[in-house]
């Protein structure tokens, strides 16, 4: 983890259907760290994640205020190229969703969209991405089989490989392990520890324990308010706010 700021969220307010989902949020994401954003359901964690690469644009009826700076540039400004932004800040969803095509084509989907046609280059990218997502050994002999036939855990690692093929700078993970078995979960968490050397990672964990296991820093969101943020070890050992300690110790949520 470096001290360099990758993403800086400034005075951010988010409304959905006139309801305030995120209130006056100020939060920095540092380069090459794993930041977990955790909190009970409907606290705005997923919304915040989706705002970081403007997936929120797809939802009608949203309204935002404030700035989200990526390397100092506001991603909310109208002249930003959304396709480029989403390649730079890529997302893995809660439900593993391979597209209905082969394993190879799934991983090559993003590069192909940006115009890569060279077969050798594509093959190289696919292998490299699958290696990083710790899936290569399991699928290298059946790259051209349908991705729909992989197990849930394999599918989620495929989704991770699929965004790695974009050579992103920031990886957003929205409860990536919520439906997975413990073995798959630990495989994904293991790959995250390697990935943070190259990427900046923001994760919404599916439970508090995962936040404790994988992240360098943790931010606790409650009903749209940022309650506390700090090094994960500190937040968990000595939470400054009573609400944080109540949540971590399982008194609500």
């Amino acid at each position: 983890m470096s001290e360099q700021t990758k993403i800086s969220i400034r005075d951010f307010n988010f409304f959905y259907a006139k309801k305030e989902v995120i209130r006056a949020l100020n939060l920095d994401v540092r380069e090459n760290e794993i930041l977990s954003v955790f909190g009970p359901a409907n606290s705005g964690t997923t919304t915040l994640l989706r705002a970081l690469n403007r997936m929120t644009d797809l939802t009608p009826g949203v309204y935002m205020e404030g700035e989200i700076l990526l390397d100092g540039k506001n991603i909310r400004s109208p002249d930003i190229n959304i396709s480029e932004l989403r390649r730079k800040v890529s997302m893995v969803f809660e439900v593993p969703t391979p597209l209905p095509m082969s394993i190879f084509d799934n991983v090559a989907y993003g590069p192909r969209l940006s115009g890569v046609k060279n077969r050798v280059l594509l093959e190289h990218t696919v292998e490299e991405s699958l290696q990083m997502a710790v899936l290569w050994d399991e699928v290298k002999d059946r790259l051209h089989n349908s991705a729909m036939r992989l197990s849930g855990g394999q599918q989620q690692r495929l989704c991770l490989a699929r965004i790695l093929a974009l050579h992103p700078e920031v990886i957003l993970l929205d409860r990536p392990c919520s439906g997975l078995d413990p073995v798959s979960t630990s495989k994904i968490e293991e790959s995250l520890r390697h990935l943070k050397e190259k990427f900046t990672i923001v994760i919404v964990p599916h439970n508090v324990q995962q936040a404790g296991r994988v992240s360098d820093r943790a931010a606790f969101l409650l009903m749209g308010d940022l309650i506390e943020v700090g090094l994960t070890a500190e937040v968990f050992a000595n939470p400054k706010d009573k609400r944080t300690s109540d949540y971590i110790t399982g008194r609500f949520g």
């Binding site: 396709s83 989403r86 390649r87 940006s114 699929r162």
Partner: peptide, 9 residues
């Protein structure tokens, strides 16, 4: 969603 999130138009 997946296609858009991978930079698809």
């Amino acid at each position: 969603e997946v296609s858009f999130s991978l930079g698809g138009t």
